[in-house]
Simulated assay, not measured.
Amino acid sequence: MSEQTYLTTDELAARIEYDARTIRDRLKDSVLLEGIHYIRPFGGRKILYLWDAIERDIGRYSKDNGFVVPMANGGVCNG
């Protein structure tokens, strides 16, 4: 079993050089999806981001890839 890297919003913000507010207000639930890119441990309010999934998908929604809509299953719908 591989070891997962869990990050808080502030730690993720530092890693990808985005403001923590941007992550919370614009990325969470649009390109960062619950159960794929983040979890709520023990059903609580705290959010932990899954670095491995984010690192895997970080370029997936780039303008260079055309217009895409992220799907809940982790796939994308090309527009």
Results as ranks from 00 to 15, higher is better:
F67I: 14
T8A: 06
R45T: 10
T5N: 13
G35W: 01
L7K: 09
R24T: 02
V69E: 10
L27T: 05
Y18R: 15
S30G: 10
S30P: 05
A20V: 01
R40S: 07
D57K: 01
G75D: 12
F42Q: 15
D10A: 15
K46A: 08
E3S: 11
R56I: 00
N73G: 07
Y61T: 02
Y18D: 04
L50E: 01
V69Y: 08
G74F: 03
R26D: 11
L12E: 11
G74I: 00
F67T: 12
A72L: 14
S62N: 06
D57T: 01
I58N: 05
S30D: 12
I39W: 00
S2Y: 08
G74Q: 04
L50F: 00
R21Y: 10
R15E: 13
N73A: 09
D19E: 13
I39N: 01
K46R: 09
L7G: 06
G74P: 07
E55M: 03
I54Y: 02
Y18P: 08
Y38P: 03
Q4W: 12
E11L: 13
I58G: 02
Y49K: 04
L27N: 06
R45H: 06
A20Q: 12
A20E: 10
A14V: 07
H37T: 03
L12Q: 12
L27Q: 08
I23H: 06
E55L: 08
K46P: 02
D19P: 07
Y49E: 04
D10S: 14
S2D: 12
Y49T: 06
A13T: 05
G43E: 02
L32N: 04
R60H: 07
L12H: 07
I54R: 05
N73I: 06
Y61Q: 03
Y38L: 02
P41S: 01
I23Q: 07
T8C: 12
I16S: 11
R60Y: 04
